[in-house]
């Protein structure tokens, strides 16, 4: 195959269509000759509606130069279906493109269409494994995570698909406890998607998740991801924040409590790590929320915390903390 389709006898029967026929476009892009050539022929193909093996090659050629060309993807998908190309083969072919262009929407959407059409739990399970390799390269890739969640929900096979997810998340948080995508995935698996096999006892699940979050907060008390998960867990289960007052309190003081002198280790309330930088802003915010929920005389304590956040500990959000004060006082 020569460099340009225009020089290739195989394409001699297709009439290429220039992008702008009668218009002198504003803000044009300076395409390479190869890209211009390929998209001219692609417009020609779209006009006749051709779906053929050479159209598969052409769309791949365009996608490699511009993976965001959604029309090329769309026509490729239609062609794959029309030619009854084995879908597993197409998925396989797209693995390398997916890993090369993993920040592109279309790459992942194409796989989703293929998996939907394949409708195979085995393929879905293999895809989850493939996504692990992708997330190894980019642990916070948005589309990959959202696609992983879709696979779990769409195929929804408890033992084959969902069973390994919590362990996988724990591995990822072991590597980087600040990976917010992994925290979100945990919420998706544990709370947002119904009840997993073995998770029927919701009180036990709540205890487990609170312990998990507390343990991770103890490691790195200024990690917002873990605090947001803790808050989400409480709100989702309608648990008052005050249930955690004993745990949170040591994180709100500037001196970490003395460790090791006491024989009694309170497993429910792990203390801040030795390296903790205290007070932790998220802990102060949390404590103020406890006081606000309590209301009455406690409102004053919340106001004190918000004032210290506004004027000293978190001055970037001064306006917000002052709003919280106004809001609490007007509701008091």
């Amino acid at each position: 195959m020569s460099e340009l389709l225009a020089d290739d006898p195989e394409w001699a029967d297709v009439v290429p269509i220039r992008q702008y026929e009668d218009v002198n476009p504003i803000a044009p892009i300076f395409y390479s000759e190869e890209y211009k050539d390929a998209t001219d022929y692609f417009r020609g193909v779209l006009k006749t509606g051709e779906m053929s093996p050479r159209v598969l090659r052409l769309t791949e050629r365009i996608i490699r130069m511009n993976p965001a060309h959604y029309t090329a993807w769309q026509h490729r998908y239609k062609t794959v279906i029309a030619l009854k190309i084995p879908l597993e083969q197409e998925l396989e072919l797209m693995n390398e493109i997916a890993t090369t262009f993993l920040k592109t929407y279309q790459v992942w959407h194409h796989r989703r269409l293929l998996l939907t059409a394949l409708n195979s739990i085995d393929a879905a399970a293999r895809e989850l494994e493939f996504l692990k390799t992708v997330l190894r390269a980019d642990a916070k890739n948005y589309h990959t995570w959202s696609f992983r969640q879709w696979i779990l929900a769409h195929f929804n096979k408890e033992g084959r698909l969902w069973a390994g997810e919590r362990a996988y998340i724990e591995d990822l948080l072991e590597q980087d406890v600040r990976n917010n995508s992994a925290w979100h995935h945990r919420f998706f698996v544990v709370f947002a998607s119904g009840v997993r096999l073995g998770d029927e006892d919701r009180d036990q699940v709540l205890r487990r998740e609170l312990s998990f979050a507390k343990e991770k907060i103890a490691l790195a008390p200024n990690n917002s991801s873990a605090w947001n998960y803790l808050r989400g867990t409480l709100e989702h289960t309608n648990t008052p924040f005050s249930a955690l007052a004993v745990f949170v309190e040591p994180y709100t003081t500037s001196q970490p409590p003395s460790r090791g002198t006491d024989d009694v280790v309170d497993l429910d309330n792990p203390p801040p790590s030795a390296g903790a930088q205290l007070p932790a802003t998220p802990a102060l915010e949390f404590m103020a929320d406890i006081y606000e929920q309590e209301g009455g005389n406690a409102t004053g304590k919340a106001v004190e915390i918000w004032k210290s956040l506004a004027n000293e500990k978190d001055v970037m959000r001064k306006k917000y903390w002052e709003y919280r004060i106004r809001n609490a006082l007007s509701n008091a």
């Binding site: 504003i26 803000a27 892009i29 300076f30 395409y31 390479s32 998209t39 965001a68 060309h69």
Partner: peptide, 24 residues
């Protein structure tokens, strides 16, 4: 960008041409 056009690396925006115009 508007008058002379966009360099080749903007080929990635070939399916977003109205956006290039709007942003500008």
């Amino acid at each position: 960008n508007l008058r002379q056009g966009f360099p080749e690396r903007y080929t990635s925006q070939d399916a977003s041409q109205p956006w290039l115009i709007y942003w500008t």
